[in-house]
Simulated scan of single mutants.
Amino acid sequence: MAQKPRKNTMISHGIAAQNRKGRFNYAIKETIEAGLVLKGAEVKSLRLGRAMITEAYAGERNGELWLFNSYIPEYQGGVLSRFDTRAPRKLLMHRKQIEKYLGAIAREGATLVPLDIHFNNRGVAKVTLGLGEGKKNVDKRHAIAERDWQRDKARLMRNKGRGDY
């Protein structure tokens, strides 16, 4: 028996796009939530949960913070307005916060990495940025080994009660 195709479910609040490699490739020191300037069709497309921010980064343009190289596909719901899928999108933050993070980028060589795009409880699109430094390969291997050990430990504890070690 064939299954019915699922309807496109819209995200009213929760994560719309996630950068899972962000925490793996960077040692995140601090996170900040920023608003995101979007067009109506971009919001509709984000609510479908098909956006990608794995290659995105935040940077400065004319003294403001912008999100570059994020991919939000065109909305196919009959909307006539077209938009550039990889257009830079302005980030909304307080002036003092912008100066603080731009100073950290200039002084310490840190990077602003987008970790996720989500909708808050009021349905407003927000992006979580992490201020971090790139990890060395040794640190990445250590993180992989730690994750594997945690997985094996959980498996051992689960199987301990059954008697098959």
Rank of each mutant, 00 (worst) to 15 (best):
I28R: 03
V113G: 02
Y71G: 00
G22Y: 00
N120Q: 12
V79Q: 13
R50F: 14
P5F: 01
R20K: 14
E55R: 10
A2R: 11
L131Y: 06
E33Q: 12
I98C: 04
L115Q: 05
S45V: 07
R50N: 15
N137H: 10
A154S: 14
I105N: 00
L67F: 07
D139P: 04
Q150G: 06
N25G: 00
A104V: 05
G109E: 04
G22K: 05
N8E: 14
S70G: 10
Q3W: 10
L102Q: 15
G40V: 03
K96A: 13
Y26W: 02
I28E: 04
E60S: 08
L38V: 05
R61E: 15
R107H: 08
H13F: 12
E30K: 08
A104Q: 12
R82Q: 14
L67S: 02
D152C: 09
R23M: 10
K153C: 07
V79G: 11
V37F: 08
I32T: 12
D84Q: 10
V127C: 04
R141S: 09
T85F: 01
R23C: 08
K90R: 15
T54S: 15
A104F: 10
V43H: 00
L80Q: 11
L92G: 03
E42F: 03
M52R: 14
T85V: 13
E146H: 06
V79Y: 12
I144P: 08
M10K: 08
N69I: 04
A110F: 09
N137E: 15
E55T: 12
A2P: 14
R147F: 11
L36D: 05
L112M: 07
L131M: 09
D148K: 15
M93G: 00
